[in-house]
């Protein structure tokens, strides 16, 4: 669908733009923090809108279920396929057909570039949770595309 592809193209262009070699320092290190921050700001703002019609969350797990269902559906048109937790603040969200990866690979080709395409989503989850008063660290793991795992470590104070 045309309106979906616009988002995907914009996303991949932002990544290309963020990774453009800076003439000043000339380092070849890949810096994805800009992309992650864009995701954080977007997640923070969209959360206010998405939770408007939602009753108050009972606990952290309830919040994570919301992320897996409604939040994910809103952005990626599908739900998370698997949610695991150790009940001590670690949650693993598995998406078997992650939208940003399905387009270009099915297997190991381009595997080394995969981290670029999950940074935005890590920020998005982190921003959304931050607005719900849950501080977290979100990392992603891609073993075989197009499936992807997001690890959420909730920081308790």
């Amino acid at each position: 669908m045309a309106d979906d592809i616009v988002f995907e193209l914009l996303h991949s262009e932002i990544i290309n733009y963020a990774l453009e070699p800076k003439s000043t320092n000339g380092s070849k290190e890949v810096d994805l923090s800009v992309v992650e921050y864009i995701g954080f700001a977007a997640g923070y703002k969209i959360m206010e809108r998405l939770t408007r019609e939602w009753p108050r969350f009972k606990d952290e797990l309830d919040t994570m279920k919301f992320i897996c269902t409604d939040f994910w559906t809103c952005i990626y048109k599908k739900q998370i396929d698997n949610l695991r937790t150790n009940h001590q603040g670690v949650y693993v969200l598995q998406d078997n057909a992650f939208r940003f990866l399905t387009n270009f690979s099915n297997g190991h080709q381009y595997l080394e570039y995969a981290p670029r395409y999950v940074a935005y989503t890590c920020g998005l989850i982190r921003g959304g949770l931050a607005n719900l008063c849950i501080n977290s660290i979100v990392t992603a793991e891609v073993q075989s595309m197009p499936s992807c795992k997001f690890h959420i470590h909730v920081q308790r104070t």
Binding site: M47, E48, T51, R52, W54, R56, F57, N131, C133
Partner: peptide
């Protein structure tokens, strides 16, 4: 009257 959002606003 009061109202508290899910984001604690």
């Amino acid at each position: 009257y009061g109202y508290v959002t899910n984001t604690k606003i």
